[in-house]
């Protein structure tokens, strides 16, 4: 990959409870592009994604070796401030997970915890983020309503707005459309396309058409290993590895 990389992993291994979930993964994630991670269930793609914001720290009995850098700084080092890291690397989850608060409070939550107090400034951030996540028009008249009253697709875009509100550099998306219907999925995919102007997006997906539609680069993972990584067009049209070809042509998984 010729573009400058924002995240690089070098020989990363990960064990859950002594079971190996990632094996010598080395990947470069290019800046301001959409990178898709594909592969069958349990291949480690979500695990890899959660290494990038150290969310695996929440799970007991996890051991990680190897090097993961963000902007050339090793984030695996014990001195890393995970709070600063997670502010830079936002995440959208598989199941929409708005907090049981109002729509406004959901988006304002991030800026608030990072110290923004001024009401006018918060209002601006909230509106801007909701517009950017293409949901402003749908919710602008009911910002004080509970976020849990929104539809699944709206909730997911709200979660994206919530992530955008803290102005991250990278947005991780863990199968963001798997709980959504096709129309909501289309809206999210369009949104991803808009986002890559300002952000680096890494998306884990089960859906190969989705990977082909939204991503510039694709990595294929299998049994904890990164089998192949490259331009999406190349991976889908001229895969180098037989495993990749088998997967893409639907011969397994």
């Amino acid at each position: 990959m010729s573009e400058s990389a924002i995240i690089t992993t070098n020989n990363v291994n990960l064990w859950y409870n002594g079971k190996r979930a990632l094996e010598s993964v080395s990947i470069k994630i290019p800046r301001n592009k959409v990178t898709a991670l594909i592969g069958p269930s349990g291949c480690g793609k979500s695990t890899l994604l959660r290494c990038f914001n150290r969310l695996n720290d929440l799970i007991d009995h996890v051991k990680i070796t190897g090097e993961i850098t963000l902007d050339d700084k090793n984030i695996q080092e014990s001195g890393t401030d995970v709070v600063v890291l997670r502010k830079k690397v936002g995440m959208v989850f598989q199941k929409p997970n708005p907090f049981p608060k109002s729509i406004y409070e959901n988006v304002a939550y991030g800026p608030r915890v990072h110290g923004v107090k001024d009401k006018a400034e918060l209002d601006t951030i909230v509106e801007h983020s909701l517009r950017h996540a293409a949901i402003w028009e749908e919710v602008k008249d009911r910002l004080d309503d509970s976020a849990l009253g929104l539809s699944g697709g709206q909730q997911q875009r709200l979660c994206i707005a919530r992530t955008l509100a803290v102005e991250p550099e990278v947005i991780l998306m863990d199968e963001p459309c798997s709980a959504l219907d096709p129309i909501a999925t289309a809206k999210i995919e369009n949104l991803i396309d808009l986002l890559k102007k300002d952000y680096t997006v890494i998306i884990v997906t089960h859906n190969m058409q989705q990977a082909a539609r939204v991503s510039d680069y694709t990595g294929f993972m299998y049994l904890g290993k990164l089998i192949e990584c490259g331009k999406t067009v190349q991976i889908f049209e001229h895969p180098q590895e037989e495993l990749t070809e088998n997967y893409i042509t639907g011969r397994f998984g």
Partner: peptide, 26 residues
């Protein structure tokens, strides 16, 4: 739900902010 906690931490809230502003209110 675990998702609330992860959602808050992923935004870069500290554990205490997550506990005091999301988990306890919920």
């Amino acid at each position: 739900p675990r998702e609330f906690k992860e959602g808050s931490l992923a935004i870069g809230a500290t554990r205490w902010q997550t506990i005091s502003k999301v988990i306890v209110p919920a």
